[in-house]
């Protein structure tokens, strides 16, 4: 994967998320495509696509919608780094590891976001964050799993030759 490919993917995800996907929100929860892309690109590919894209588009996201710049970016950065580390411990060819990574990353992203906001504004309630968490996890898992099943598997022409 080339860096401008991942840039285009992130750009598309960001634009869709802020405009069209708001109409698909369920109980007021919109799928977080940028986070899903950070997870997928870091977990499935070599290199730092997910981390770099996450930092850059996190900043743009904050610029457009955040009150304080850099929070989403910080969250994506930490998530990307953790996945880079965990990736070597998990078996990448299994859907369940994808699911596990998605669930734990969404959970930690929400926790990081809440923690930073709590430090700076001290105003947001933990339960308010926790309420949107289950639907967020389901939405993000649907995206990452379908990406894994549809695109992720086709990248290796002969998946079994991978370790030869």
């Amino acid at each position: 994967m080339k860096y401008w490919h991942s840039f285009l993917l992130f750009l598309g995800a960001f634009l869709l998320q802020s405009t069209v996907l708001n109409h698909l929100s369920f109980f007021g929860v919109t799928p977080n495509l940028v986070l899903s892309l950070v997870i997928v690109l870091t977990f499935l590919y070599d290199g730092y696509h997910g981390v770099v894209g996450g930092i850059f588009f996190g900043l743009i996201q904050d610029l457009c919608f955040g009150e304080i710049l850099g929070i989403a970016s910080f969250g994506y950065f930490i998530i990307g780094l953790s996945i880079l580390y965990v990736k070597n411990l998990l078996y990448q060819d299994n859907v369940l590891s994808m699911l596990f990574v998605t669930i734990s990353s969404t959970l930690s992203f929400h926790l990081i976001y809440w923690a930073v906001f709590f430090i700076f504004k001290g105003h947001y309630h933990f339960l308010f964050m926790a309420k949107t968490l289950p639907i967020s996890i389901i939405y993000n898992s649907i995206f990452t799993i379908s990406y894994y099943l549809i695109i992720g598997k086709r990248l290796e022409k002969n998946p079994k030759d991978r370790y030869v």
Binding site: Q17, S18, N22, G28, V29, N32, Q61, F65
Partner: peptide, 10 residues
């Protein structure tokens, strides 16, 4: 455009 973070209403 609406905020995609699901928390705020910016």
């Amino acid at each position: 455009a609406l905020d995609g973070s699901n928390w705020f209403n910016l």
